[in-house]
Amino acid sequence: MDDWLIAIIKVVCIWVWVLLIAVVMTWVERRGAGLIQDRPGPNRAGPWGLFQPLADGIKLFTKEEIIPTKARKILYILGPLLFSLPAFSAYAVVPFGDKIILGGKEIILQVSDVNIGFLFILAIGSMGVYGVILGGWGSTNKYSILGGLRSTAQMVSYEVPLGLALLAIVFVYGTFSLRDISLAQQGTFLGFLPNWGIFKQPLGFILFIVAAYAEANRVPFDLPEAESEIVSGYHTEYGSMRLGLYLFGEYVNLVTISGVIVALYFGSWHMPYIDLGAYLGPISWGIVSFCIFFLKVSFFLWMFVWVRWTLPRFRYDQVMGLGWRGLIPLALFNIFITALFIQLTV
């Protein structure tokens, strides 16, 4: 019974935490845009506009829900739900800290340490595209359908390099479990480099982050919702909280992706060169590891914002070309090199 209770507490806590980050991200995105673009950004609601997400939430919730007359009602309603559900559940296998010992009971800071860890993320991630498809198709709008089509092709194409990059990581660490991979990143190798994924898989990291940006529909891969071309893509016809679910699901996705990047490539909760766990008590180390992990995550969240306000957008055929002619051969090459290296050293 205890285990169940702990699991439920963990689920609730991390869920609330991720949602909170996603909410704050909507603020960070706009303030960050202001910072980058020499302008104040939202600054009316609360100090530094901190309550802006709240105001937006109230606005979205209280708006009239409109279903266009020509939309396919069931699909139209189902779309945002199907988009946000996988987004909300994908964080289940991502760790958010080392472990904490409470009353002699060891609690790992991860909702569920399954041995098929990031295969789960891949599978769940590919579910999100159904929300986009349903939204685009259900709206019966040409722009929406174009957005849905673009999104489908893009997601399917970029899942391949994403999976291949992850495969190389599996070669290196010999496990699918994100927790085992995190644990393996402690210490240094070659005497001076932290034992992090990025130093073992530099090419793999680049491939992964590019593919992850494409999966998250972020600039420069935001073609499904390119507002200057196809108005808003798949959510052109959406309003009120249905639109909110789409936008919010996107930010939750960002948190998950950043968490995966940190867990796989940036040494999870480990500090470079120093093992804080050896000096701190079990409870304080649990808290500190959580903080370290989320500091790293917030860096990657900021990077999403940073890139968004820096780069122009690709064109549809260029995205496809980059995926199939650029990333996939590189990913295969990466796998080949990794396999060769392991064969020679082990």
């Binding site: 396919r72 295969l119 579910m127 159904y130 685009g136 489908t152």
Partner: peptide
Amino acid sequence: PLLAIFQVAIYAGAILILIVFVMMLLMAPG
């Protein structure tokens, strides 16, 4: 469990999406 994940990732995430993609290409929404 591995097959369960593969089932979702490959069948739902790739094969069905391909079918749906072709559906969107070839048919009108209404």
